[in-house]
């Protein structure tokens, strides 16, 4: 790791102020991605602003027809939250499948989506549930938030405060894990709710999470595994490496979508 200054603000306002002052700051939430990156000397921030101790960012609130989750809420907290489990079991399941137990004790919702790793799970939930991402500056629709591999709509100095997940009528997440890294090689989140039907795919796309319109249309007509069984996403734009060809991953999108719909029925 290169040297950096470390700050652990207690409030969001302090965090914003520190971010504004620093040359080239990085926000540390749970650190489960940032710290490995720093260890490999792939990043050289001047300042690391640790928002993991900001209490106002660590909460889960069920209000009306949505669950609000603070950005610094740990995956394990989401996975075991009675509110999330009750209103949005697919989201609780997804959080409980991220990384491993120790990673889930540290990793946070905000950290995951701000990083937008193409193999991360939460982006699929955000996109698949028409989530609203509230930042220190504005509200961003999930559809607008994820802009490409490791790219988001976040601007410099903008911190995610919370994410609003509306309750789905039906939803499920199915993940095919990369055998080595255990990240999502293909993860498919399907849902039905006030927003209609959504099918969001993570892990597979070269540009990160994406929606499959053809599957959404088919499921809107008939919510059944058979409805998506014959819909193939094109292999173009799908990752290909030693763990599997683009064709294989594209095929897995269909298989996982089918299984997710079955699980959500």
């Amino acid at each position: 790791m290169y040297q950096f200054n470390y700050e652990r603000p207690k409030t969001l306002a302090d965090a914003e102020a520190l971010l504004g002052k620093a040359d080239d700051p990085k926000i540390l939430a749970g650190g489960q991605t940032l710290i490995p990156t720093l260890k490999q000397r792939l990043a050289m921030p001047s300042d690391v602003i640790d928002i993991g101790g900001i209490k106002e960012l660590d909460f889960i609130r069920a209000e009306g027809d949505a669950v609000m989750i603070g950005a610094a809420t740990r995956h394990a907290t989401v996975a075991t939250s009675p509110d999330v489990r009750k209103h949005n079991p697919a989201l609780a399941d997804l959080a409980g499948w991220i990384g491993d137990p120790a990673v889930r004790h540290m990793g946070t919702l905000g950290g995951s989506i701000a990083n937008n790793d193409p193999a991360a799970d939460y982006p699929a939930a955000c996109l698949g549930l028409d989530a609203k991402i509230h930042t220190t500056k504005r509200l961003i629709e999930a559809d607008e938030f994820f802009t490409g591999m490791f790219e988001t709509a976040l601007q410099d100095g903008e911190i995610i405060k919370e994410v609003t997940f509306p309750h789905p009528e039906k939803a499920a997440y199915m993940k095919f894990r990369n055998p080595a890294s255990r990240y999502a090689m293909v993860g498919v989140f399907v849902s039905k709710g006030p927003w209609g039907v959504r099918v969001a795919v993570t892990g597979a796309g070269q540009n990160g999470v994406f929606r499959v319109a053809e599957m959404e249309e088919a499921l809107a007509k008939s919510w059944s595994p058979d409805a998506v069984a014959n819909i193939k996403v094109p292999a173009k734009g799908i990752n290909s490496d030693l763990h599997g060809s683009a064709e294989y991953r594209a095929h897995l999108v269909t298989v996982m979508a089918k299984r997710a719909v079955a699980a959500a029925s």
Binding site: A180, S181, H243
Partner: peptide, 26 residues
Amino acid sequence: LLEHGVYDPDSGQLVTGSYMDYCMPR
């Protein structure tokens, strides 16, 4: 079923250089 030490056939870079790509039995 899982493990394979793979070098890129052209560059000779080790493709499976960490547990991200070398599949250890869990």
